[in-house]
Design a protein around this nucleic acid. Sequence first.
RNA 1: GCAGAAGUGGCGGAAUCGGCAGACGCGCUAGAUUCAGGUUCUAGUGAAUGCAAGUUCAUGAGGGUUCAAGUCCCUUCUUCUGCACCA
Length: 802
Amino acid sequence: MGYDFKSVEKKWQDKWEETGVFHAEDFSEKPKFYALVEFPYPSGAGMHVGHIKAYSGLEVVSRKRRMQGYNVLFPIGFDAYGLPTENYAIKTGIHPRKVTDMNIEKFSNQLRKVGFSFDWNRVIDTTEEGYYKWTQWIFLKMFEKGLAFRDKTLVNYCPSCKVVLSNEDSQGGKCDICHSDIVQKSKDVWYLRITEYADKLLEGLEKVDYLPNVKLQQKNWIGKSTGAFVDFEVKGSDNEKLKIYTTRPDTLFGVTFMVMAPEHPMIDKYADRIANMDEIAEYRKECAKKTEFERTQLVKDKTGVKIDGLSGINPINGKEIPIYISDYVMMGYGTGAIMAVPAHDDRDYDFAKKFGIDIIEVIKGGDITKEAYAGEGELVNSEFLNGISNKKEAIETVVEFLQKKGVGEKGVQFKMKDWAFNRQRYWGEPIPIVYCEKCGMVPVPYDQLPLKLPRVENFEPGSDGESPLAKINTFVKCTCPKCGGDARRETDTMPQWAGSSWYFLRYIDPKNENAFADAEKLKYWGQVDWYNGGMEHVTRHMIYSRFWHKFLYDLGEVPFDEPYAKRTAQGLILGPDGDKMSKSKGNVVDPLDVVAEFGADVLRTYVLFMGDYEKAAPWSKSSVKGCKRFIDRVWALQDILVDGDEYSKELESAFHKTIKKVTEDIENMKFNTAIASMMTLINTISDNGKINKAELKTFVSLLNPFAPHVTEEIWEAQGFGRMLANGEWPEYDDAKCVDEQIEIVAQINGKVKAKLMIPAEIEAADAIELAKKNEAIAQLIDGKTVVKELYVKGRLVNIVVK
RNA sequence: GCAGAAGUGGCGGAAUCGGCAGACGCGCUAGAUUCAGGUUCUAGUGAAUGCAAGUUCAUGAGGGUUCAAGUCCCUUCUUCUGCACCA
């Protein structure tokens, strides 16, 4: 009897749906387990095998935990706002609402066909009014607390997509979406003051269980540095001081020049006193033209102009030093000006070499005629600091000196910048703010949320980078909620990151109309116990959502301050050619093709078997066949089934060992070796020639999280009782994992010379005796002097001879 | 440039605390089943050498520690990922 996966898989998917076995139960007495996977963006292309791998990890963990008696919340939803949908809509003329609904429908069907055990009662869609009402609500709370604000700044603007982009969306000077060059443009934009949470976001990492690499990336992203602010008097100014930030105040005696960012305001202020203002203006113009990409490409080739008319006075020794402008100093970090110590900083060194500036060594240990020395060492040429070799002590001494003189203080800086929060696009959450001539910026009252996105037919962006909503008079024109006078609405929408910043909270109570989630339910479900997703979301999405969550915690809206207790990440699936899958390379594998040809169980098993879950691995169709064979062999176990309510003597230890291995490997996400151990077990069973009912029950239970359809079918066909989805996870006994007789190797001088069977519980001396009795070993020892003998329990005997 | 991770058969990958390197799967070879293809089953499969028992060599390269090294230490090369003039 062959295994007909097509009808069997459909049957069980329907059955799970009808019986609702995977619905999480609020306030259940069972221990809770909240497993979260990154919800997909429902693109028109449909699901990718990468999605399957991303979800299969926690899918297996969730199914196992249910069998272990947990109340599991394993939800799914759709992060549906975003540009691809909008661009598709512009191209085809189909409304984004319709496109989104179609894509969600498509994704849902595909997910069901793979048999994921999601709780379909809790599906969320970020573009739904009932959902984005609360996205807007959180925004208004932030506005109330001054964390959402408007500011005029230079922004990254993509001329092709016609949107303002955050720094994160425009890395390398290219638009993240269309990859065209970014230009700088002055605009009034919305910001979220994430920098206020920089320290909390950093400290929070101490108490969560994220992969080390994830923590490190977040840490780098936040980019905290400690140092000092120092004021340099500026000769030629009206007694003004130029404030700089440095992490190396200990090198203050080595300062030979200063550098300001091209946009530094002091230049404009004293423009009339700067003799070479023309030259400077010309340089500034050039810098503005350079894209960020060009700036980073020319790292080594420093450019700049000396300011003729202003100079700095080093507060530690009163020396007069020149001031330059150069684009290697940026306005956006620190104070936009630096003290330059060429002897001990690579960039300053390059600049000094090019412009012929003095290089004074103040820290011993390098050769400053060749390159800058950034290491530690004894201080020299530094008056009262000479002789100190402890960096920390030197820094403290200098800071103390500066503080006494009132020209400096300790300081902290972050690389992280405030989050540019608005987009000039149609398909996003409207920002619920009204502009009134009299009252200024007025929030839309909470009871008027959601501020609905108007349904329009024309969503092309304006040519000047204005939101499509600006063209809709009925939306723009409104009355001021405060004074009742004429007002107009904000027409920008929120970025795609908004809806995903709090979605895990909505799963807890997806249909609540009075709150984003009920307080008691929040308390019951608590933190996400385990969050799995891609490495690419570790900095942006995760930091944004941790920020929103910490804000809600400070408001008292959520009872825990870190959203995710544990975070892991899956590796990519590469194309069969070893390259990243992409449409242009034509190496994309469609998961539904695999389901049609081999079945969902095979697909699920393969994506977890193909390699280490956390590492990238290429797709191999012939290896998929190996999993197909495995599933068929599992089905065929029924042909050699015999009676028996206990493990047979022959297979007992093999079963205990496998249960232990699979149980532990799943928790460690070592799915590949878990599957391998079940394959090994089936080989052992084949050699044994038969399997009894107790053994089959265990085997099928172990495999169920990976291949739920075939295992349910066997369970039912054999009349083993209630559905396996409700079944119990097999137990193992450590004592039964060991065999009575074990095989060890006998070595002479560390080389294997023989193998022998010995009792597992044996004294070292006895084991060595047995080894010596072995014919081959005895011959090799004969006539030689034994120098050393040792026995490694359960492994080997090694006899060292001369 | 800086930080992190990784280099193991023809391929994907295993290997707990330093203890039989190559589990498991693919592929390949031979045989059985089959009209044939596919499927399935059995045996074999790191390299060199030998009729054989065996011996020698093998975890990017080179050195070291140890009875014993893929694993620990030093040097070095390569690849991938992140950050990238952050003062």
